[in-house]
Simulated scan of single mutants.
Amino acid sequence: MTQNALPSVIVAGGAGYIGSHMVRMLAESGYHPVVVDNMATGHADAVVSGATLEAGDIGDPTFMRGLLQRYQPQCVMHFAAASLVGESMTAPAKYWRNNLVQTLNLLDTMVACDVKQFIFSSTAAVYGNPVEVPITERHPQQPINPYGNSKLGVERALADYSQAYGVRSITLRYFNAAGAHPDGTLGERHEPETHLIPLVLQVASGRREFISRFGSNFPTPDGSCVRDYIHVQDLCTAHLLALKKLGDGAPTTVYNLGNGAGHSVNEVIEAARKVTGHPIPLRDDPPRAGDPPVLVADAQRARAELNWVPQYPDIETIIAHAWQWEQKHAAMKR
């Protein structure tokens, strides 16, 4: 227990995109979020008041031991990772070190400090090229890039740490996180940006000239890739439910997080045109290596076992919330 006797939760990577939304939701839900971030890609101004920011590395045992002993957290939520698929192909050492080695160091420190609840942000990249759609948690796990391999490595370690050391964990496999806080005060600001929705909206706001479509001859209804977009607030709600489930003694397990509905690149661009009123010029570029035609989640387990119900499944709503943020952020950039 920490200040004001609120239960504390350590949020690794809490100054980043999804982490900052989670920190705000925790603070609004009666927790004291303690953000641990090395600020490599995080933003201090994204950490809401009511949270504590501790700058440092999760893989530093001395630093983390001090924090775990000081705050005695109920749980550690882990959002800190390198997550660019293309970069992982050319710099795999960075991904194995950041995503696996650092996490193993963190887990070892947790074991030493008797902190036994862990929520891990994983990814649909652990599945590789889908052999069936929608993808359930039982789908074969055959990553096709070092990013997915590094995340799967952590998942397998978590199963072993649970059995040997009693660290109970819930792993949440995201599909395509998107959107922004509905009030427009938090959103995506990656450098460089690689996600489709913010890139499309940067065209609408005048920060880019056009949006690239990487391939238009996929075996999909309109020839462009299909993805399952999930609102960042819905992701955070699932984490909050997972936190409560672990607190009730739930065993180690894994859940997909997605809406179960796919939207093609063309559909996303058209929805963005409708939301923004901007023509959004399009350029056709060659397909990228390793882009599966369709990635759509079966998230029935999360709905059934966590009682998770996405509040913002509509793609136009997701884009509208992201557009509020992009307009504000674009004005700040000028």
Rank of each mutant, 00 (worst) to 15 (best):
E188W: 07
A238L: 02
R138S: 14
H329K: 12
Y95V: 01
N129M: 10
A180L: 04
Y229R: 10
G290H: 02
T62Q: 11
Y229P: 00
T123D: 12
V275F: 03
L106V: 02
D114A: 05
E87T: 10
R168N: 12
V111E: 13
D314H: 09
P92M: 13
T2S: 15
T90G: 01
Q72W: 00
I315A: 01
A178M: 14
Q327S: 07
H190T: 10
M110K: 12
A46T: 07
R303G: 06
G184Q: 07
L68F: 08
V11G: 15
Q311M: 03
Q3G: 14
G166P: 01
G153V: 03
A261E: 07
T109I: 05
Y95H: 13
V126A: 09
G166N: 06
G13H: 01
G215K: 09
G262I: 00
H21W: 00
K94G: 00
P7C: 06
D284Q: 11
N145S: 11
W325Y: 10
W308M: 08
N259S: 10
L26R: 04
D60F: 07
L152Y: 06
N105G: 12
L306V: 08
V200P: 06
D291W: 05
T62M: 07
T194F: 15
N307I: 01
G86E: 06
L186W: 02
V200G: 12
Q3T: 03
I197L: 11
G223I: 04
T41I: 15
